[in-house]
Design a protein around this nucleic acid. Sequence first.
DNA 1: TCAGGTACTCACCTTTCGGTAAGTGGGGGG
DNA 2: CCCCCCACTTACCGAAAGGTGAGTACCTGA
Lengths: 126, 126
Amino acid sequence: MATTRQGPYFCGIDAAMDVVSGKWKVLILWELHHHGTRRFAELRRGLPGVSEKMLVQHLRELEEDGLVHRKVYAEVPPKVEYRLTEHGVALNTALEPLGTWGTERMRRIGATKVPVAPAPVSRQPS
Amino acid sequence: MATTRQGPYFCGIDAAMDVVSGKWKVLILWELHHHGTRRFAELRRGLPGVSEKMLVQHLRELEEDGLVHRKVYAEVPPKVEYRLTEHGVALNTALEPLGTWGTERMRRIGATKVPVAPAPVSRQPS
DNA sequence: TCAGGTACTCACCTTTCGGTAAGTGGGGGG
DNA sequence: CCCCCCACTTACCGAAAGGTGAGTACCTGA
């Protein structure tokens, strides 16, 4: 079925965590928050390591939960745009203190950042 | 090994989510935040449905991550007390906006609360 | 002609997560 | 005597999460 997750929950945090649990969900939210509107392939490139299967699945769930809006253009090379809904924006705002805490923690424990894609130059020879 | 989780991470939220991912972790944090100090069995009773295995495992991980402090009393009926460290308190503070968002979301979608333990009366007949 | 980009879907597989049930060792209560 | 309580540990198991690699239908550029 995979309809909107809807508890029962112990409390608000429990409900929020439910919506956000999934390896890439907060990162998708983050990406959408920073870029406004993103196409599928742009998200894939922005999240090094994500599989197409999980990206689609997470986007669908975020859409079901009313956090992300999906706009399909009836064009011949397929074009789909994703952006946050107002609830998605509110969620991201609520996640900000957590991000700050996490950044501070990374500094404390000396955690490294994930290696970023080396060069998005349009084409490189073999 | 199960040492402290330490990335690499995409960003702060990623790092924070790592520390908090686990079915009961935010609820343990929440419980500790509201009661200050709790014993193992008190936590178990406060989290209806948690298995002892997961409770121990999550508490150990939270301890490794420096969010929870564990104090063992060398007494003859075993006694162990758990409480938040300063980092745990800070994390909980950072989780509060998320909790507010989640509570609002529960209202929107009409999510139910988990059934609370009916009566903590000291003893009931068979 | 042929590779590559678009946004996916599908089948299969491995890994991880979390639950169940039992055991531990001593003390206290009925 | 028997059972419960404390705070765990251990072995086992099923479910769920997530990754891999293939296929789809069409178009564009070299």
